[in-house]
Structure formats: C-alpha cells, structure tokens
Design a protein around this nucleic acid. Structure first.
Lengths: 225, 225
DNA sequence: GCCGGTCGTGAAGGAAGTGTGGAGATCAAG
DNA sequence: CTTGATCTCCACACTTCCTTCACGACCGGC
C-alpha cells in the first residue's frame, strides 16, 4: 500500500486555500494549510510534507524566498502558484527550486494532476530519501540509521546530524564555524570544543579512520570514492 | 460484522433529531447528535464519524457552510436533508461536497436506506486497499482491526489511526509534530506528550518491540520487510 | 628541540527527552 | 445518575544526551 502523502499548502487567500485543501483531501492526501511565509518554513520543518503547493504572492516574505528556504533545509518538491503569467516569476521560481508551476486561475483537476505528477516524479527519482552510500558507510536519513561495513552504529541525534553534514561534502574540509552554524545553528563560533566532542563520538562508533582532522581548520569525511 | 459505524446527525429540531437517531441506532449504528453548525464541525473533528446526516437549515451558520468545512477538514460522506424541494439548495449542496440528499418529509425507511448506501459506497471506495501486512502485523483498515502474530488487539480509535500512520511509512522515523499534525490535526506543536501516551498504549497491546523510539525526533514502526 | 596553539579524551554536571501511572474531563450507553 | 471507555495532561522517575573542563598529546613554525 502506498503511504498517505502529506501536502503543505501555502496560500493567504482563505477561499483558495480551502478549495485547494478540500480537493487534495478528496484525493486522499493529508493537507495542512498556512497563510504566510514564516509559518510555511516553520510548518515544513515540523511536519516534513511530501510536497508543497506555494503561492508566490504572500505576506511576510514572498514565495520565492519561502521556496529558497525550504530547499535549503530539506529537498522537497514544490508546485508554485503564480498570479499572473509573468515569465520573470516563473523563471526565478524554477531557479530557486520549484519543480512545477500553475498560473491562476487554474482548475482543480489541473492542480491534482500536477501534484500527483510531482509525487510520482519524486518517488521515481528518489524513493523518498535514498540512503547515502559512501564507500562502506551507509546513512539512511529516513530511518536515521547508520551502518559501516554492514554493522549498525547507534548515534545520538547530534552525532547523526553532524555526520550527515560531513557526508554532504565528502573529502571536503568543513571548518568548525561552518559545522556549528549548520548543525547547531550557533552564529557565535568562539572557543568551543563541542564539535570535537561529537567527532570523538563518531570516531569511536564508526572507526577512527572515517574522519580526518585538518589542524587549525576543521574536519573532513575520508571515504572511498 | 465490521466494526460499528458512527453517524453524526446535525439537526436543530429536536423531534426530528431524536427520531433519526433512534432509528439509526436501531440499525446498529453509533449515533451522535448536535444541534448547530459550530457544534457539528467540532463534533466531527472529535468523533470522526463514518457519515454525516445534515440539515441545510441550521442556526449558527447554515448546512452548506457546515458541509464545506467538514470536507475541508476530512473527507466524509454527507447526506443532506433539504426542507423544500429547492433545486438551488440541492445543487449547491452537491457542489460543496454532499453525496446524497433527502427532501422533507421523508420516511425513516428511506433514510436508513440512503445511509446504508452511503456507507456501502464508502467502504467500496476504500476496500480497494487490501489489509496492510507488515511482518507479523496485519492491519485491516476497512474493519479497523489489528492482529499481531495472529492475535487480535483491541485498539482505541486514536491508537488505530496512529498505527495506520506509522504503518504507512514502515521503518521511517516520523517526528512527533508530524504525527500530531496528521493524526490529531493539530497545527500547533504543543502537547506532544499526547503522542507518547498513545504510543504507550500501542506498545502494551502489540508488543514493546513494534515501535522504535528515536531520541529527540519521534517514532518508527520496526517491522520485517 | 622548544614553544604556543590546537586537538584527543575521559569524566562530570546539568539539560533535555522519554516511560509510566494516574487524575480529571468528556461523552455515550444503560 | 451511574458506569464504562476514551482522551488529554501532569508529575515523577529514569534514561539519554550535551556541553564543558582539565590534562596530556600533538602539530607546526622557529
């Protein structure tokens, strides 16, 4: 059986939002609605929708900015709703990570067709979130499991997030400040040994050879190509 | 026989409401009655009826508005009761998501026939999905029954819905906020301990090994592929 | 080889998250 | 009205995790 998919609808006009939500629910989706940009980013972080239907015209910050932030946090397919037939919006939209678009006014039938297509393309392309495989290291983000050479390691939440960030750029040295900013969200990066502590944990659980220290700079994931 | 079906009756005339409720109970349904629009929306959110019998003439806001809101939250078959033989009401009613209608006065026999038809259509629509089988766990959505290793467990409605959502993405970690949003329909992320409570119930009834806790994130259904 | 700065490591205190039982509320049925 | 079932929330105990500190080892420039 196919899992029930969740759609986040970002639309400030209540009437449109309700209509879209009702139709998508009738299609068997779980639907959540928010009315502005900040709420959209927040909601996406919490509920991790399978797709987002996004109006470009929003209070707060505009849809393009929302789209950019969503993509920055976690790749998610986005269907943009553009009020006018404006090529500028469209091109920018596709540039910041939208996967498809609809020009208002649109029919509900058209909307559901696009959403289905988006999810189909998504599952075909990535089957949700495919495990990251780097040499003998395997990271399953959806299940939050990690194995090396087939053996599973139990990582703490921070260790897992740290490893995922390192794995995002294998063999690249990531400065401590960068890791603190990305994983911990700390702007201030002064004199903390916190990163080192968690690197220690990763090395103990996954093998000391996995992570290379670059003196005075940071760490890099050393793994076979 | 399948699990007992629940019907929500929305009707402000007490005499009619009582008569309808009595007859439907005699037919073996669980029946809840409310007398106005806001109460109807509220009740539907809580008890999740299998069908709604809805008078178009209501205090508060009218039946059409109720119907629209019900559909917006969760698709549910609606039988509308129209006082007069007014095509306008009827057409609008069907447009906003009502599935069938009855013109007053109507016979009880006619009412029960329509309700049965509504539910039959409904179960047929969802019977296309066979029971979910995951390892030794079997979930029959149509009958709302669950067995593990062949033994049936009696789950409360919330526990059942929660289990279905976990089973929709086996082995995938679902954040508490996501579950709260999908199962409870709470946009607001507070009260996440409620999830824990119902997980407790599931573990007690189905075995502690069925659900994996992922510290700081949420839960995942652990089951053989 | 020396020295200042950097890093690895173990331990410890405190913070955060989770399991659990039960109280209180709600609602329908008898 | 009372009973039974359910849901939400709370308090407490318990577990897991994070951060920091201290100390010794290491690195690189001189």
């Amino acid at each position: 059986m196919a899992a029930q998919r969740t759609i986040l609808v970002v639309e400030d006009e209540r009437a449109i939002a309700d209509a879209v939500a009702a139709r998508l629910r009738a299609e068997g989706f779980l639907v959540h609605c928010v009315g502005d940009g900040p709420a959209a980013v927040e909601a996406a972080r919490r509920i991790r929708p399978d797709a987002v239907v996004l109006d470009v015209m929003l209070p707060g910050f505009d849809g393009l900015e929302v789209c950019r932030r969503l993509q920055a946090e976690r790749p998610v397919p986005v269907l943009m709703l553009t009020a006018r037939d404006d090529e500028t919006d469209l091109l920018i939209g596709l540039a910041v990570g939208a996967d498809d678009y609809l020009t208002k006014p649109f029919s509900m039938r058209e909307l559901t067709a696009r959403v289905h297509a988006l999810l189909r393309r998504m599952t075909k392309a990535s089957a949700g979130e495919p495990p990251i495989v780097l040499g003998d290291l395997e990271i399953n983000r959806a299940e939050r499991r990690v194995t090396r050479a087939g053996v599973e390691a139990h990582l703490t939440p921070t260790e897992f997030d740290l490893l995922v960030h390192l794995a995002g750029r294998p063999r690249t040295v990531l400065p401590r400040e960068r890791l603190l900013a990305d994983v911990w969200g700390w702007a201030d990066a002064s004199g903390t040994r916190t990163v080192d502590s968690h690197i220690k944990g990763l090395r103990r659980k996954l093998g000391a050879d996995l992570i290379r220290t670059v003196h005075g700079v940071g760490y890099a994931l050393e793994v076979d190509r």
